[in-house]
Amino acid sequence: MKNILHYILLLALGMLGWSCEKDNYEPPSSQLTGQLLYQGTPLQLQHDRVSYELYQDGFGKRGPISSTFTTEGAFSHLLFNGLYKMVVPVGQGPFVWSGSDQGDTLLITVNGNTEMDIEVTPYWMVRNSQFSASGGNVTGTFGLEQIITDANARTIENATLYVSKTIFASSENNIAIGTIEGGAITDMNSISLSATVPELVPAQSYVFARIGVKIAGIEDMIFSPVQKIDL
């Protein structure tokens, strides 16, 4: 009897010792990072809005890792080494995906930490944005540069100054906005918008401001860099 117990104990210990080694995979450890750029300038986007998908073929069912670009157009993933395909679904993003010759698909080979900046062509860029605050008003001045001017050119629907309590200033997170319709813009190089900051609860001595530009026929907006302003 005692012998049997000993064997069982031994067997159990052996299983414990081995099973860990056998069952567990190494966690993914290769970091894939990158950013959407236009001529070296990062594209500014809305938080959690412009989505992309990563696919890896050859492992049974095919489903994407779906995610969204950060407000600075960056992305990062911890992955296993291998060949991945990156896709920005049709209609996403205020830019034309000119990343590769594979149509809308960009092939990425991940081998160790990989950095992959992607050059895309936005329809428009917000240039020289400057923000100031005085007397409870936030004023933003900026210029708009049309990048795509060929047959695919698109007009500006409107441009909006978003003032927010957090850096995620956008149509979703704002406490005050100032808007100008695209048709009302006379000088694309110098546009000025202002918004009145309401009383902040709880009180806060600073706000964040950002210019967002809605391009006709494109849902996702392109933004200026966000700036913190002391009131």
Binding site: S51, P89, V90, G91, Q92, E219
Partner: peptide, 8 residues
């Protein structure tokens, strides 16, 4: 054979 929905 199913295609994905647009703009998602």
């Amino acid at each position: 054979k199913l295609v994905r929905q647009p703009l998602q």
